[in-house]
């Protein structure tokens, strides 16, 4: 028995370490400890032994069994490790670039627009939207622009033929012409006509001018306007808003100043300058950024608000211009070419 066990263990000590795959291992394991295994067979011989030998042989078998189990466990552990290692393949070169695309980028005009809207939202302005195809009433008449004002000229504003019909752009006057809006102020009119004061909106959007495209002009560009209608709104409130906007956007040290100006739809009207010393590529102490003023009583009358009761202010600026100042971009056409080398710089 002792010799038999020794031979079995010697065989196992050679056989198990040589195993590399799980099926062979299972087969080998069965050959020793399976129902028909060699060790199993030896154990079955125990019954036939004389009583006094049983404890001695039993001890021998148990020892052999323990040794055999160690071979089996070692082989299993080795095979399991090999199996995991096989899932891995060769080690990665962490310095290779990812072949995946991306990341995607927001357009700089979107970034600037969203930043302005975020700043304005904090002080209660919500986004209003309106059609880009407009009518003469909403774009001009309601904004106190006389019918022979040069801005309405066919040489400055894009019009549609009299036969044009836009199903979802409402007309106020039956025979007025459709045009492409020259400013987002038309949204102010539509918003005031639709709702009741108090009103506090920001209307970012695309506008159109019949202009030669060059480094600073574009047939379409984007504006952002704020309108605030409430009781007792003052010039000082307007100045406070502009100070707040540009301090939020450019840092607390940024100052704004008003210069008196003329717009048909505000009285008094101002152009807004801001300190530009920390802006890239600007060599002047002040730079013009937009126009603003107190809503002209005529505009309130046009939308049916009592100018004795309601007061308000409006502010408007060009988004391209702002983006150009913020990022130091010197040609407006970059915004419309979508060269990826441009788009990837701002996200």
């Amino acid at each position: 028995m002792h010799d038999q066990l020794s031979a079995l263990l010697a065989k196992a000590a050679v056989e198990f370490p040589a195993l590399t795959a799980r099926p062979e291992f299972e087969a080998a394991k069965a050959r020793y400890v399976g129902p028909h295994g060699e060790l199993t067979a030896l154990m079955k011989q125990m019954g036939a032994l004389p009583k006094e030998q049983k404890p001695i042989v039993g001890k021998l078998i148990n020892e052999a069994k323990g040794q055999l189990q160690a071979h089996i466990d070692a082989a299993l552990s080795r095979i399991a490790d090999a199996e995991l290692a096989a899932q891995l393949g060769p080690a990665v070169d962490p310095t290779l670039p990812s072949p995946d695309l991306g990341p995607g980028t927001h357009h700089p005009l979107t970034l600037v627009r969203e930043e302005m809207c975020r700043i304005l939202r904090k002080v209660g302005f919500t986004i209003a939207d309106g059609p880009e195809v407009e009518t003469e009433y909403y774009c001009f008449d309601a904004l106190n622009t006389p019918s022979d004002h040069p801005a309405r000229d066919e040489k400055d504003t894009f019009y549609f033929p009299a036969s044009a019909r836009f199903g979802n752009v409402s007309k106020k006057i039956p025979d007025e012409k459709y045009l492409l809006r020259t400013h987002t102020s038309s949204v102010q009119i539509r918003t005031m006509l639709k709702g009741e004061p108090p009103i506090r909106i920001v209307s970012p959007g695309r506008v159109y001018r019949r202009d030669t495209t060059d480094a600073t002009h574009s047939a379409n560009f984007h504006q952002l306007e704020c309108l605030y209608v409430d009781k007792n709104v003052t010039v000082r409130d307007l100045k406070a808003l502009l100070d707040y906007i540009f301090a939020s956007l450019l840092g607390k040290e940024t100052k704004t100043r008003f210069r008196p100006h003329y717009f048909g739809y505000t009285e008094p009207s101002f152009e807004v300058d801001l300190t530009a010393t920390h802006l890239p590529k600007v060599k002047k102490p002040w730079i013009e950024i937009g126009g603003c003023g107190m809503v002209d009583p005529t505009v309130f009358e046009a939308v049916g608000y009592d100018p004795e009761v309601w007061t308000g202010y409006a502010f408007g600026m060009g988004l391209e211009r702002l983006a150009m100042l913020l990022y130091g971009i010197d040609d407006i056409r970059y915004f419309y070419q979508n060269d990826l080398r441009f788009l990837k710089q701002f996200a």
């Binding site: 409430d230 100070d243 210069r259």
Partner: peptide, 19 residues
């Protein structure tokens, strides 16, 4: 117009939702 005094921006609660 350079002498318009500074002030805190008037911001009574939101009056609407974004379009």
């Amino acid at each position: 117009t350079e002498k318009i005094p500074a002030a805190v921006v008037r911001a009574p609660g939101l009056v609407g939702d974004d379009d």
